[in-house]
Design a protein around this nucleic acid. Structure first.
Lengths: 179, 179
DNA sequence: ATCAGCATGTAAGGCGTTACATGATTCA
DNA sequence: TGAATCATGTAACGCCTTACATGCTGAT
């Protein structure tokens, strides 16, 4: 596995659950974890090739009935071990890169109204994301007895809780700036 | 300015406040905004050269008394305009890349105790960061009458509020996993 | 027939990190 | 005198994104 290529772990993790094509991997990322992780075709396909060379994943026997090639992959033993090894590693990289905070920090260069506007733009996007996550949450709550859903549920509540904290902070900050 | 090179904006923003050398820029980033933005020498020095070519920043007359070269930069009019233009743009890129959430999402592959351990590692690092931010906050509260400090204060409270939300979520999640 | 979505891949290029090279100054 | 810090820069390399190339399939 490439040393710092996190997309490898995403692929390994998704394949642990079910066999997938590169295209499906992309869809899964977009649907389920895009609020804290992204992936593009340009990173997924090369990663799959590399990982196959390293024996972490393997192509399934092609079952494409005449149609265009469709290459699904599954995890090998080595791949599953790599995934488990990573889960047990304590070193993690958690990184937040918020341009909004940068604009806020340098807000003094412009009129306060500019910063207030920037806060409102941020607020609006958070509110939208929050709505989506809340729908996910209520759907997940109906099926929480299944172990797999529990982990998804936890990431969703992470999103909801932090977004709610953001909104409270926005309100507070706007108030302070308007004084 | 390079299209997507955010380090340029950091440099512009810092120089709006005072003239700085590349070395000082790095120190400023590490001291003040590192919890949401990073920068390395390998990105700062080339960015300064580029931006000088583009007329956004300019070297000060060298005032180094015989010693080793020490190159401080200041903003040009064009540089200040670029900074203000960016502040008024509504498009922002806010990105969260938390490996902890990835490990959580794929936690089903291993025993629950592994996920709980990962949550505890996260909790511990957040608690430490929170302590630092709380010290910053109480220092800043004493000097909040100065406009510059207000903006810094707002980014610090952002950090505190979100970290506190993280900790609450950690406690809740651990409880759920231990059931 | 045509268009959206399925599906795989490559190429170019940008951004950033780490490590290295180099040397001065300051303080114990 | 030796170590830490100040200070500037380059080189190698890795990761990722965007855009492009290509073609099938199914619905309207």
């Amino acid at each position: 596995m490439a040393k710092d290529r996190k997309i490898d772990l995403v692929i390994l993790g998704l394949l642990a659950h079910e066999d997938l094509t590169g295209y499906d991997i992309k869809k899964n990322i977009d649907r389920s974890i895009s609020f804290f992780w992204k992936g593009s075709f340009g990173s997924i396909y090369p990663a799959l090739s590399d990982m196959e060379k390293q024996g972490l994943v393997k192509r399934n026997e092609s079952d494409n009935a005449g149609g265009r090639e469709k290459i699904a992959y599954h995890l090998t033993k080595k791949g599953k071990d790599a995934l488990k090894g990573w889960l047990k590693e304590e070193r993690v990289s958690n990184e937040l890169k918020y341009e909004t905070l940068l604009k806020l920090y340098f807000g003094g260069v412009e009129d306060r109204s500019v910063t207030i506007r920037n806060l409102e733009v941020f607020e609006e996007s958070i509110r939208q994301n929050l709505e989506v996550l809340q729908i996910y949450k209520s759907n997940l709550e109906k099926v929480l007895d299944e172990e797999d859903h529990l982990y998804y549920y936890l990431t969703v509540t992470f999103g909801i809780d932090t977004y709610e904290a953001y909104l409270k902070w926005c309100a507070k900050s706007k108030k302070l700036l308007k004084k």
